[in-house]
Write a protein that binds this DNA or RNA. Structure first.
Lengths: 224, 224
DNA sequence: TATTCATTTGCAAATATGGTGCAAATTTTT
DNA sequence: AAAAATTTGCACCATATTTGCAAATGAATA
């Protein structure tokens, strides 16, 4: 890994900020902190961290709101997000990562769990590369907006491309319809459920290979 | 959000209350006490403890009754419950934890056993913050929405998957029918009791392995 | 052993969900 | 401004999923 990864930690409890900072610094990361949602958004824009660790329960804007705001801005698409959540919080929303987050950790945080999850996320990211995704014979180039299969280029429209890129960013993972809507259309745009289907249909047609599978009642996933 | 765990101790003997309180306070927990079942229910509602240590034998409402009442209310779903029971009480009901409790401790209480069980329960809960559950040869991947046994993938429908994931999240624990209904169907959906059975049947068929056992009149549990 | 009660099982109906063809609305390109 | 491409919506259809019923089975109890 070439550059030092930047991590923004957001929590209203100074103790947590300190202890988590300390441990991740010890792992060699560069640490930024924020005490609330608004500060988090400001610092995220200013410093473009690679990972944001977000407390869910905060006065003012809570973690989920902050995450939604970030996820509507394409520039934060490659930014990783981990939630810190109360152990008691059984909400499927968080467990199923419908929020657009990449992982979550329950409080009280085990520092071992924390550091290993953080390291794991970055390791995974290193494989993905931010702008070039390779899955089997597929190659998805974010910068050039190009998908190719067996070195044959496939031309996709923008939404189609974003959809493929999203699904392929975590092969095998089921993306819930909500998650897809949030990450590609954003939270304030309202489009019907059929819209996703139609785009998926077009993608399937164009790719010609059956690599997007439907998980009924749940969502879609990309796999070879 | 405080990370200090709250424990409600319920016993009609003041001595027990005091000695247990003292020891768990020393472990860093925040302690509440109640002298009988009704007081316990009130304090549970008011303070939402993370763990309730319940004496089984009490005048008025006994521990099992209190537990049953708590377990029918979804809000107490994440609340841990440990029974305190007389050594002489061999009742399979408690030993098998068919009551919806998470563990039991025999009287006279060994303080070492007590604290270690309490700590263990909280630790186990902390580990639940993963989207990958492993039980024996089973692997349940929430993210990929996939169950596999001996590395063979098994395709389950949504409700089936959620049911398996729920049961397998605490292997050995008996989930009461009410609990299952609340957690998978939610409180506002009304489906008959038979519905659970039928889903269980399908799961058993698909899994091909007998890992869900019936506890008659109570519920189901997952174990290998 | 007879009785009771809960669960299982086979069958079938009800429902939810995604796919498809077509067309309108919107955006981008020419 | 016109044309083309893209995006979104609608309505119908096929099918997977979910639910219910009723008879059969099985366990527990007296």
């Amino acid at each position: 890994m070439s550059t030092v990864k930047k991590i923004l930690i957001v929590d209203d409890e100074p103790d947590i900020l300190e202890i988590v900072s300390f441990n991740l610094k010890a792992e060699g990361y560069e640490i930024l902190t924020a005490k609330n949602g608004n500060e988090a958004l400001d610092k995220a824009k200013q410093y473009m961290p690679d990972l944001i660790i977000l407390d869910v329960m905060m006065p003012g804007k809570n973690g989920i709101e902050v995450c939604n705001i970030l996820r509507t801005q394409p520039i934060f698409n490659p930014t990783l997000i981990i939630f810190l959540t109360a152990m008691a919080d059984e909400s499927a929303e968080i467990k199923g990562l419908e929020t657009g987050a990449d992982d979550y950790i329950t409080k009280p945080v085990s520092l071992k769990v924390l550091t290993s999850k953080v390291n794991a996320l970055f390791r995974r990211l290193a494989n993905e590369g931010t702008s070039l995704i390779k899955v089997g014979n597929f190659e998805i180039n974010r910068e050039k907006y190009l998908v190719s299969f067996d070195n044959t280029e496939i031309i996709l429209a923008r939404k189609e491309f974003e959809l493929v890129a999203l699904l392929a960013s975590k092969p095998g993972k089921v993306f819930l319809r909500n998650e897809i809507l949030n990450r590609i259309w954003g939270t304030d745009v309202i489009v019907g459920d059929r819209t996703i289907d139609v785009h998926i249909r077009k993608i399937r047609q164009k790719l010609g290979v059956d690599c997007i599978s439907t998980v009924k009642g749940v969502g879609y996933k990309f796999e070879i």
